[in-house]
Design a protein around this nucleic acid. Structure first.
Length: 217
DNA sequence: ACATTAAGTCATT
DNA sequence: AATGACTTAATGT
C-alpha cells in the first residue's frame, strides 16, 4: 500500500522537506498488526510510530495485572526514552485494532538526529508533552477512591473538548484498567453518578450535567 | 470501599 | 450459534 504515509503523518517529521521525509522513510520499516498483536516488549529498542489504528501501552503490576498507561493514536509514537539511552524494562504495547506501525531503529534515528537537529528538538518538545500526560495519570492513581479518579477523568475529557458532551475514547474494560480498577466497579460508579444527576449517559456518549458536583470529589 | 466470581443481557459476527 | 462487551448480584478482603 502507500508506504509513505507514516512519516508525513507524524508531527515529529511532517515539518520537514519532502526530500528529508523520503530519506527518513527509507530507514523505516512498515508493518501491519492485527488486533491483540504485540508490538513491543521489554528489551526492544526502536521508535514505533502509529500511522493507522491505535495501540495500548501498559505495564504489569506485582500481581501480574495490566496497568494501562496510555493509548497511542495515529501520529503518536512510542519508545523515545530508549533514544535517550534508557532501556525499556517494563513496557508492553499491543494493537487495539488493525494497525499500521512504522518502526525506526535506534541507530537510524540517531543518524537522522545528527543530520537534522530540528528533529531532536521536536522530539524533545513532544516528549515533554507526554511527560505532562504521564504526570496527570499518576496523579489520578494517587487518589484514594475510584469515584475521585473517574470524576477527574471525565472532567479532563470535557475540558479538552470544551464541551460537556464527551465520547469515551476507549472500551469500558480499558478505561477501568486506565483508572486502576475493574469493569464492574467502573460500571457501578457510572450508575452512581447517573443516579445522582452528575452525568447522563447512553453507551459511550456521556454528558456532564453537574461539573461542580464532580469537582467536589 | 473495593475485588472477585458468577451469571445475566445485549449486540456483533 | 458463538463470541465479546457490559451490567448486576452475591460474597469475600
Amino acid at each position: 500500500m502507500d508506504q509513505h504515509m507514516c512519516v508525513t503523518l507524524v508531527p515529529l517529521f511532517n515539518h520537514l522537506s519532502v526530500e528529508e521525509q523520503a530519506e527518513i522513510n527509507k530507514l523505516a520499516s512498515h508493518k501491519h498488526y492485527q488486533k491483540n498483536e504485540t508490538i513491543f516488549q521489554p528489551g526492544d529498542e526502536q521508535l514505533d510510530i502509529v500511522a493507522r489504528g491505535s495501540i495500548k501501552v501498559y505495564q504489569l503490576s506485582a500481581n501480574g495485572k495490566e496497568q494501562l498507561l496510555r493509548v497511542v493514536e495515529p501520529g503518536g509514537y512510542e519508545g523515545e526514552n530508549q533514544l535517550f539511552g534508557i532501556e525499556n524494562e517494563t513496557l508492553f504495547a499491543e494493537a487495539l485494532e488493525g494497525t499500521e506501525i512504522c518502526t525506526i531503529s535506534k541507530q537510524a534515528i540517531n543518524q537522522v538526529m545528527l543530520k537534522n537537529p530540528q528533529i531532536a528538538i521536536k522530539l524533545f518538545e513532544l516528549s515533554a508533552q507526554k511527560m505532562v500526560q504521564l504526570e496527570k495519570q499518576s496523579q489520578l492513581l494517587s487518589m484514594e477512591r475510584v469515584e475521585e479518579r473517574l470524576a477527574s477523568y471525565l472532567l479532563d475529557l470535557a475540558k479538552v473538548t470544551e464541551t460537556n458532551q464527551v465520547t469515551l475514547p476507549m472500551k469500558m474494560k480499558d478505561i477501568s484498567q486506565f483508572l486502576g480498577t475493574t469493569p464492574e466497579t467502573l460500571s457501578r460508579k457510572f450508575s452512581l453518578f447517573e443516579s445522582q444527576g452528575y452525568i447522563s449517559r447512553s453507551g459511550k456518549s456521556v454528558t456532564v450535567l453537574d461539573p461542580d458536583g464532580l469537582q467536589d470529589m
